Amino acid sequence: MHSRRHNQRQRIKLVMIFAVFSLPMVAAWGMVQWEVGIPDRHMAHGEVGVQLPSLNEWPLTVNTESSEDTWTLAFDCTQLCEQRMDEFWRLHRALGREAPRLTRLRIGGDSQALPGEVTSQWRQEPDWQEDNNAWLFDPFGRPALLFDASVPAADILNDIRHLFKVNPI
């Protein structure tokens, strides 16, 4: 009888140990699966894993070679161009001392370039291009994030700040 209670206690201890180590994994899986309890500040507002050619392969009228420490924010300026230019100019200024790490590339529009902005036109509009999209490229010209027209500039700024923080010079 004593041996039977001892075996039951050992089994209960084993089940408790298993539960203690497996419950966090189950909870984490549930958080990811149903997007519950995930802090917003750690999620990109843009689309990650963009399957686009590198920036130097884009059909643009300017040379888009970037330096090894400069990220590029390219944006299509087909519609609401003045507003989009102003939003990204303010975004660039909001970076403060990190601003030299970003170059703005405006594609389209007839307006004069704002300070810190490079202008270009499509030589031939690619099939993956959508009006008013913005793309963030790493210093090697590889696409990092895609932002559609509905993403506010403040969210784009947050993503850029996060990338600068995790990718120091």
Rank of each mutant, 00 (worst) to 15 (best):
M1P: 06
S3G: 05
R5E: 07
N7I: 14
R9F: 04
R11T: 08
I12F: 09
I17L: 15
A19P: 05
A19T: 14
L23F: 13
W29Y: 15
G30I: 04
D40Q: 11
R41N: 11
M43F: 04
M43A: 15
M43N: 11
E47N: 10
V48T: 11
V50E: 03
V50G: 08
Q51N: 15
Q51T: 14
Q51D: 15
S54I: 09
L55S: 06
N56E: 09
P59V: 11
L60C: 13
T61N: 08
T64A: 10
T64D: 02
T64Q: 02
C77E: 03
C77K: 01
T78A: 15
L80T: 05
C81M: 08
Q83V: 09
F88E: 01
W89E: 00
R90A: 11
L91Q: 01
R97E: 12
E98R: 14
P100Y: 08
R101Q: 14
L102V: 10
T103S: 10
I107A: 00
G108E: 00
D110R: 04
P115I: 09
E117L: 05
E117H: 07
T119G: 05
S120I: 06
S120C: 10
N133S: 11
A134I: 04
A134W: 00
A134F: 00
R142C: 01
R142I: 08
R142Y: 13
P143R: 07
L145T: 04
F147D: 02
D148V: 06
P152G: 06
A154L: 12
A154C: 08
I160G: 00
L163I: 07
F164M: 15
K165A: 14
I169C: 08
